[in-house]
Every structure is written in structure tokens, then in C-alpha cells.
Design a protein around this nucleic acid. Structure first.
Lengths: 336, 336
DNA sequence: CTGTGTCGTGCAAACGTTTGCAAAAAGACG
DNA sequence: CGTCTTTTTGCAAACGTTTGCACGACACAG
């Protein structure tokens, strides 16, 4: 057969030959050293280091049935909410010797499904963040894949959720106390669980405090859409806006500013996810949880089941906190 | 041996058995359909679709010597410069049926080396963005790996560079024409080629136009460092600042604002990379290239050599453009 | 008909590991 | 020193593909 480069990468077999022992022994020196004589392990490791041996994960995964890798599937890498999660997942996985695939579905549920499907055989499992897929499609995929969801709540599937409801309730309460009687929720991506859950939290809290809550839906939840929404918002008389995330809050901030509406004097703004809160002027009041922990939890759910056939359904909840900034102030009369 | 689930994923062998043909034929139906009778191909594909067959990339990569995957290694996923590149690389790779590994080195050259080393056997090649490694270490790695660098210029290695020098020269010229005689360059990450090259471009252009150029070095090139730098900057009498990137430009903008220095009335600011230019107030004047194309070029260099043993050294250059915003204005006398 | 191609398919080896089982070596004990 | 354990090692099969080679079938020319 093909012999690409005769002196290719060192393999277990070559090391075994050089040391005049069996390949199994070399293999075990790395995977089950406690089974071997310490001297043997030392000799193997020394030689391996010398020749620069790196275990071939493909062969490893092939025989053991599952690769030493996990996948991340998400709607849009460029959304600042995701990169910190990715980083944290990758670091956690790396500690266990796993590599990480990344796949961006461009906000397309069909593509998302395809990516999970294609990634399936080469990974131990997949962390699917802010999935846009239909629940039944996810459940079907979960029959043949280890899937852990982040910010998507589906019964019988493993998931880690950031619960923003308490902090949103707190924000609404504070706004009410400051004299705001008319709030607006500026919504994010349609198919997003986070959006549905935040929207509901604002409406519920508004109802409890007897204030008006308008809801502005957007398609993608982008900065530009939020910017544009300010046009409609100024006309309603709302004195405070809660945005789906910080990117949109930022869009509101700048959109209002462009229309001569000052924050927080004329309008109060609350963001979410703390992706750029301290970088705006004024600094955003926002709502956020510890994403590092969210990511680690999700990754560990996946890793806990290495070897086991199926990941048992788990539900992890992370509670977000209200982080006061300078974008909230007392209500004032506004042109309506 | 281990038989985890008797009726596991469909394989080529099972399909072959079901259709009463040889596994080779099934394999060829996917990889070399032109060798087969069209009817055979159709039958195989139909059956494969029905049972939900997905080729096992591990086995595939094992026998063919290289995996159907590439890796991305970079210093910090959370830096907004990278995600668009990642997305573009992943999409391009996906079109060729390749998956993408992501690895974040946390700005640590040692870790970067380790990640490339570990990823090596499971990928066809690695795109190393803004590498922090020493040149000789990279060159040594390149002996045993297909590596394409982005924003790192090393002879005899494949690389794609964003050339900001012409646009920086143009910016300096414009600033000079507006009466600025004292510029500052606020530098980014120490080990970054982009930083070295931008710094040099500012200094060279300043010299040509006979203006003073101060250089402020930072360790990481962060927003906060830029913010802090404004303290020192206001004392020097510089009337314009060119920042390593938009994140730092943003830090300058807000840092100056906090000190009562207005942009562009009191200070002009030029950013780089166009990661958030339109989202600041005023909008940043910035310098940027088409990252999509950069990413695609790098990916294609890697893909062009599938099967070939080694990727030939290539040098691609993308020229960045000056994008006028509202953060540059005429020079005014400033307290010095 | 026989010889020569061409096309479609099958055989079997190989890729680099892991791992169940069994054999060999080394200690323990009387 | 035998015998019995325990520790350490080796053998060989298996994972799911790809691919060099060869064989059979069929077509067409001579």
C-alpha cells in the first residue's frame, strides 16, 4: 500500500520495536500505567518524549468507539456572548485531553442539524449552545448523540440554563421604585429560548408591579435592529427599556442618543449577558451569570460519561445577577 | 471484544451486506463514484440515506493518513478580531467536508506549541492566527505539520497577511494635513506581528511627514490598558492617537472622555480591524481589510494540498483600507 | 471466434490503537 | 525448592475505512 513518508510520525509499534517490547505494553504505558512495572513505564515515556511521539487520536477513537473530542454547535460565533463560553469549554476539555470542534450554524436550524449529524461519529458528545432547532428534532438527535444544551430547556435532555428571571424581576422592581410605569422589552432572536424566557420574565414582573410592558420583537436580535427600534420606542412614552442582551442594549443606547434621548436622564436601559457593559457610556446596567461555570458544568456533564453509553439527562441552573451600571435612573416625563 | 450496542451506527460493511455487494463498492460510491456504475451509486446512496449512514471520519483519516479536519490555534477567542475569521474558516472548510478544531492558547506561546503538537495527528493542517510563538519554534513545527499563518510573516512558511501599512500611512498623512504634529501609537500585544508592523508603519509615516510619534507599549493590548494610557497621553500634548485595534481605540475614546477630553474636538483617534467602529460614539475612523477573504485564502492554501505531503510556502497579502469615521478632526491647541 | 480494451467490482491488506485473554516472570510461603 | 499467587507482559483481534491489484464481463475490432 501507500507509504507516504517512510520515516513518518513515531507510532506505538515503532517505539515497541526500538525498546524490544510489545505494542500493548507501550499503549498501556500511556493509558494504564498502573498495570505496568514502573521501570517499563519510565523507559517508554522517556523514549516517547525523545522521538516526539503523539498518540494518534483517530486510531484511539476508532478502536474505543468514541473520539477524544467534543463539538460545540452554536448559531453565531461572532456574537460576543459565545466566545467566553467556547474558551472555557475548550480549556476544560483540554484538561481531560480532549480536543474541541467548533461549528457555526449561521442561525439556521437546518444547518445546525446537519452539523450535529456530521460531527456525531467523530466526537464523544456535543455542546449545543442556544439551539435554534425544533425540540422534536433535538430529541431525535439525542437518541444517537450525547448532547448537552446550554440555554435551551428540553425535558429528558441534559441542559445548563442561565436563569435570568429573578434578576429581571429585581430590575423591574427597581425601575418601578424609580417611578417607571411604562417599560419596553426589546426582544432577541426569535427561536431563542433565552429570549422567550426573558420576555416572559419581564412581562410577569411587570404584571406583578402593575406597570405597562410593551414588547418589541426583532428577527435576529442585532445591534442594528435595536438601534432602529428606538424610533418606535420614543413614540410610546416608555421610560425604560430592557434589552435581550448587551449588544441590543448598546444599540438602544446609541439609537436613543442619535435621537437626542439621553440615558439615563430620559430613558433607562437594562442589558443582559454582560458582554460589554463596562465599555459603554454610560456603563450599562446589566444582568449576567458566571459563564465560566456554565461552560464548565456543561463540559463536565459530557465528560462524566466517557465510556458510558449514554449521558443521563441532567438539569443545571445558573442564576444570573443584576449588575448595576449607570444606565438606569429615575423616571422623568417624556414627550409621548 | 467489546460490543457496546449491537445495532450501533450503520457502517459501510452493514450497507454492503444489506445490498449484497462489497464494502469497497460502498466506499467508492461516496469517494470515487465516477468509477462505479451509476445504478450502483444510486442504490448505495439511497440505502445510506435511509439508514442514516454517516462516514466515520476517524477510520477514514486513519487509513488515508490525514484527518478530514483542520485546526485553528489562536491567542484569545474572546478578542473580537478572531470570531469572524473562525466563522469564515469553518464555513469554507465545511464546503469541503472538513470539520474544524478550535484551540485557544490564552496568549501563552508554550501552550500554543503544545496545542499545535497535540492537534497535529488528527488534522490535515493548522491555521495559526496571530501566533505568539518564536519563529524558530514555528519553523520546527512546520517540519512535521501543515501550518498556515495569519498575520505572522515567516519566510518559508505559508502565510496570509493583512497589510495595514498603506492605510496607516494614509491616516498619518490625513492627520498631518489636519494640522496634527504630534501623534501617539498605542501598541497592542507584545509578541504580535501585527503590532510590530503597525508600530513600524506609524513611525515610518510620521518620519516621512516630519511629525513627532510617541509609542505607548502595553502588555496585552486590552481595552483597560488603553483606557489607562490616556492618563499619560493627555500630558504629552499629542493631538492624535492611532491604536493597535478598535478595542484599544474604544478604550482610548472612553478613557479620554472620562478625563474630559473630547473626540474628535480635542483628540483624534484612529482604530484598526473594524471590530466595533460603527458602534462607538463618535464612530471610529478605522483601518480594515476583508477578513472573509483572508480566512478563505488561508483555508484554501491548506485545502489545496489535501493528499499532497507538504504545503508549499505561499505568501498572501491583503491590503487594508482606511475607513473614515467621526473620530478624526482638525488639530487644536491642547494643554500640554 | 480469438485477441485486446474498458468498465465495474471484489479481495485483502493496511492505518495506529485498545483490550480480553492467556502466558510468562517474579514473589510468597511452607 | 516446589507450589500457589500476584504482577507484568505478550498475542491477536477488532475498530471502519481506503486503496493497489486483479479478476470477470462485456464490447468491439480483426
Amino acid at each position: 500500500m501507500r507509504r507516504p513518508d517512510p520515516s513518518g510520525r513515531p507510532t506505538i509499534v515503532k517505539i515497541a520495536a526500538a525498546l524490544d517490547i510489545s505494542p500493548s505494553t507501550v499503549s498501556r504505558a500511556f493509558t494504564r500505567p498502573e498495570l505496568l512495572h514502573p521501570d517499563t513505564v519510565a523507559a517508554v515515556k522517556a523514549h516517547a518524549l525523545e522521538v516526539g511521539y503523539v498518540p494518534n487520536q483517530l486510531a484511539r477513537g476508532l478502536v474505543s468507539g468514541r473520539a477524544n473530542a467534543i463539538g460545540i454547535v452554536l448559531p453565531d460565533i461572532a456574537n460576543p456572548f459565545f466566545p467566553p463560553l467556547i474558551r472555557s469549554i475548550q480549556h476544560t476539555a483540554h484538561e481531560s485531553g480532549l480536543s474541541v470542534f467548533i461549528a457555526d450554524s449561521a442561525d439556521d436550524a437546518g444547518r445546525e442539524q446537519e452539523l450535529i449529524h456530521d460531527l456525531g461519529p467523530q466526537v464523544h458528545g456535543i455542546i449545543n449552545i442556544s439551539s435554534r432547532m425544533a425540540s422534536r428534532d433535538l430529541q431525535r438527535l439525542a437518541e444517537s448523540h450525547n448532547i448537552v444544551l446550554i440555554n435551551r430547556d428540553i425535558a429528558d435532555m441534559s441542559r445548563v440554563l442561565v436563569d435570568t428571571a429573578p434578576a429581571i424581576a429585581q430590575a423591574v422592581e427597581q425601575l418601578t421604585a424609580l417611578g417607571h410605569h411604562h417599560l419596553a422589552y426589546v426582544g432577541g432572536p426569535k427561536a431563542s429560548w433565552s429570549n422567550a424566557s426573558r420576555s416572559k420574565a419581564v412581562i410577569d414582573a411587570g404584571r406583578r408591579h402593575g406597570v405597562i410592558v410593551d414588547t418589541y420583537d426583532t428577527r435576529l436580535g442585532s445591534y442594528d435592529e435595536a438601534w432602529e427600534a428606538t424610533h418606535a420606542l420614543v413614540a410610546t412614552g416608555a421610560t425604560a427599556a430592557i434589552a435581550f442582551d448587551d449588544v441590543m442594549a448598546h444599540g438602544l443606547l446609541n439609537g436613543f442618543a442619535a435621537r437626542g434621548v439621553r440615558t439615563p436622564e430620559d430613558i433607562s436601559i437594562v442589558g443582559c449577558d454582560d458582554t460589554l457593559a463596562t465599555k459603554t457610556q454610560p456603563e450599562l446596567t446589566t444582568i449576567a451569570a458566571n459563564l465560566d461555570e456554565t461552560a464548565r458544568t456543561a463540559t463536565n456533564i459530557l465528560l462524566a460519561h466517557r465510556g458510558r453509553s449514554r449521558v443521563a439527562a441532567t438539569r443545571g441552573v445558573q442564576t444570573a445577577q443584576l449588575l448595576p451600571g449607570g444606565s438606569v435612573g429615575p423616571a422623568t416625563a417624556v414627550a409621548r
